[in-house]
């Protein structure tokens, strides 16, 4: 399950941020490592919600700053 989640999360990150797949490792920070700005991260969270059919509250969204954070949240809550 979590591998599947990680793959889907990474695919979304690659598409939305236009970055090389190889750079989207679990520890990568959206802003520090992948060139996102604060609006990009808002949109990323919306894309995760769409992909996984869930709702990510704002206070939880603020804590999703790396690929691993996203995988963890989705694995635990969906």
């Amino acid at each position: 399950m979590s591998n599947d989640v990680a793959d889907r999360v990474k695919k979304i990150v690659v598409e939305h941020l236009g970055v090389e797949e190889s750079k989207v490792v679990n520890s990568a920070s959206f802003i520090d490592d992948l060139g996102a700005d604060s609006l990009d991260t808002v949109e990323l969270v919306m894309a995760f919600e769409e992909e996984f059919g869930c709702e990510i509250p704002d206070d939880a969204a603020e804590k999703i700053v790396t690929v691993q954070n996203a995988v963890d949240f989705i694995s635990e809550n969906v």
């Binding site: 609006l39 808002v42 949109e43 919306m46 919600e49 709702e55």
Partner: peptide
């Protein structure tokens, strides 16, 4: 409103 893109206004 939750589905509106942060890039809508700009």
């Amino acid at each position: 409103p939750r589905k509106l893109s942060p890039f809508f206004i700009p």
